[in-house]
Design a binder for these strands. Sequence first.
DNA 1: CTGAAAGCGCTTACAG
DNA 2: CTGAAAGCGCTTACAG
Lengths: 313, 313
Amino acid sequence: MARRRRVTQADVARLAGVSQTTVSMVLNGTGAAQRRVSSEVRERVLQAIAVTGYTADPSAQRLAGGMSSIVGVYTYEPVFPHAAGDFYYPFMEGVEHAAEDSGVDLLMFTSMSGRVGKSLVSTGRVARLRVADGCVLLGRRSYPEDLAELLRQDFPFAFVGRREAPGGEVPYAAAAYGDATRAVVEQLLGLGHRRIVLVNEFTGHESIEDRATGYRTAMSAAGLHPVTFDAPDLGLAELLDTLREAGVTAAVVTSDLAAPLRRAALARGLDVPQDLSIVRLGDPERPDGEDVEWSGFLIPRWEMGAQALRLAR
Amino acid sequence: MARRRRVTQADVARLAGVSQTTVSMVLNGTGAAQRRVSSEVRERVLQAIAVTGYTADPSAQRLAGGMSSIVGVYTYEPVFPHAAGDFYYPFMEGVEHAAEDSGVDLLMFTSMSGRVGKSLVSTGRVARLRVADGCVLLGRRSYPEDLAELLRQDFPFAFVGRREAPGGEVPYAAAAYGDATRAVVEQLLGLGHRRIVLVNEFTGHESIEDRATGYRTAMSAAGLHPVTFDAPDLGLAELLDTLREAGVTAAVVTSDLAAPLRRAALARGLDVPQDLSIVRLGDPERPDGEDVEWSGFLIPRWEMGAQALRLAR
DNA sequence: CTGAAAGCGCTTACAG
DNA sequence: CTGAAAGCGCTTACAG
């Protein structure tokens, strides 16, 4: 059996008795540029498409400067190892769902995953993204040089989580960490807490900054003095001593630090939350391994994934 | 800032002082056709590539008849709804892992997931697959017309699970259901069981047939008469009566039927496995909801996924 | 050993 | 309203 050549616009055109350009026109039909194909011709073309079962070749579309209905997903850290997978899965589910909704296919840039900790720019792989109409970027940290380059190229993309970069506004889908943290602190205030501190797991990350802003806003509004500790600066034990001495009754703590802090507190004979309330700001990346009903908030991971996909087109 | 045009082979060629053809040659370098570029020129080109940070445009490569280093994944049933997800996740993990290993990107054809129960051919979407070098197909049932068409087009693909189709050998990555079932039955025989039946959840599926073959082989080799029941034909209660009357001591049961059968047996006051041994042939698609240590075998889902990816290139 | 040229299947100015 | 033509960035015969 002859290996039949694929059906092209030219075939459709021949069958419909029009030019290939016209076929492309009825297919794309973008606004004014569409130079209104007569509805009679349009009918004939549509017929021919149905008969031949024509589908556009995404590669050709893309090469010619059109859309391929493919959106890329690039993860700076491996998503699939199961430990991380548990945390990232919901993001991916959201992305997938939104992709189905939008009728686009998802290109997972797995080929680049050998380069953990490398920017796309430094490995010269930015070009690879361009098969897709746009790209969702996912990762704990981000690479400002990549973001800047993508911005400069005017390539549609969106980061999952708020990110900043030189050279413009980075499109992102993020949890409202600021608002959520403020709400949490206000709740503590409502319960009568006055000495409330913020404990950061690390610094220099947009999502951490957003939480800090929320915390400070709530405290200031209540006429209280915000106090922040950065965990790396001092050990958990030392930190707890300091908190006790200062008469702190509640600590709002970033995701992955909440459980260790609680364990340390218990180990020192403190009663949680009697002696010290610990509020968790977001679900942790690594499973707690503890069966505690944390107070605080959760990260809307599914929604963030879905929104990022929508932004990246 | 000017939106810089992407770096092309022509740019590299200019910088290296060679023709664009030569650049393509050193990049592809396939066998004899490579017409041995002199190592000096090759060096110069490689240099220029490094300097410019050139990366091939996958769309152009593909359109020109080359490889795009993209492999597609098409799932006939939605993989992501969490219920199904639990079962399918390991397959996908295997696919992902093999993709990373092979340095290819993964194109998930989510855009077609509105068409559950439809073949690719009938929705005219086969052409869409061709952005990719090949495609992994995943689904409970399969669509012979799709397989036949793909075979005819000589498009590289592989099914996860053994499948048959008119028009040639379907490439597949499958569990050795036959061997595994045979081993399980031989084990029962070794334990002294003589009246061993096979109970099928449904019929007409390749993986079910493979199990049946394994079962029959083991029974026949032991000089015993194989007896098969197809669950849909009679209720579980009736089935159990029949087994008891016939003095059956062991039933080997396809994946999803094992748990219901066990529950039915317990409900009838039978002692499992004292009165009746129930052996499960593969892990179920839907969680059992039971905390039983099943005897039988598990499906090497991860490995199947990985192998399918390798076959689909 | 190397290059000019055709062609892959589209989109989009540009002419009629 | 419609079509001929250029061009996207590659691969691969085909000539030198």
